[in-house]
């Protein structure tokens, strides 16, 4: 189970942010924002890995004392980020990957919603609850 998930637009502005513990939202925002540095570097066309990038899942971006951060980038440069507590050893790479896929499909549904204005932060409650379900593993 992850502790935080975020969706970041192609201009690196936050589109969606959810935290299991709302008190930690600010610290997680800082961590997620910092992880964009590594995503940017990985997406940098100068680095060779980017040229043959077909895999959307970027793997673990970096790990801190308290948490591990994973990244996923869609073809339209929408970034999904999941933060996992570093004490949580149970979560394997495959599970993170499938979590990302679920978030991606939720996001695709969200964008197709005619009431959602593309580019705006996502405020839908049902979206929030489904993302929370995905990261807590209740789905």
């Amino acid at each position: 189970m992850a502790v935080c998930a975020a969706i970041v637009g192609k201009d690196n502005s936050p589109k969606f942010f959810c935290c299991i513990n709302p008190d930690e939202e600010l610290t997680f925002q800082y961590k997620v924002l910092s992880s964009l540095d590594i995503i940017e570097e990985k997406l940098n066309p100068a680095s060779k890995s980017a040229s043959e990038m077909r895999e959307l899942y970027l793997g673990q971006l970096y790990s801190l004392e308290t948490c591990k951060i994973y990244g996923y980038v869609t073809n339209t440069k929408i970034k999904f980020i999941i933060v996992v507590d570093s004490t949580n050893m149970a979560l394997r790479d495959n599970e993170i990957r499938s979590m990302f896929r679920k978030i991606h499909s939720e996001y695709a549904d969200m964008v197709s919603n005619p009431f959602y204005i593309p580019g705006e932060p996502i405020t839908s409650k049902s979206f929030d609850s489904s993302i929370k379900n995905i990261i807590t593993g209740t789905v």
């Binding site: 201009d11 502005s13 936050p14 942010f17 939202e25 600010l26 800082y30 924002l33």
Partner: peptide
């Protein structure tokens, strides 16, 4: 520039 308003507010 990147519009992280939660952080900006802080």
């Amino acid at each position: 520039e990147e519009k992280w308003y939660c952080i900006i507010s802080n």
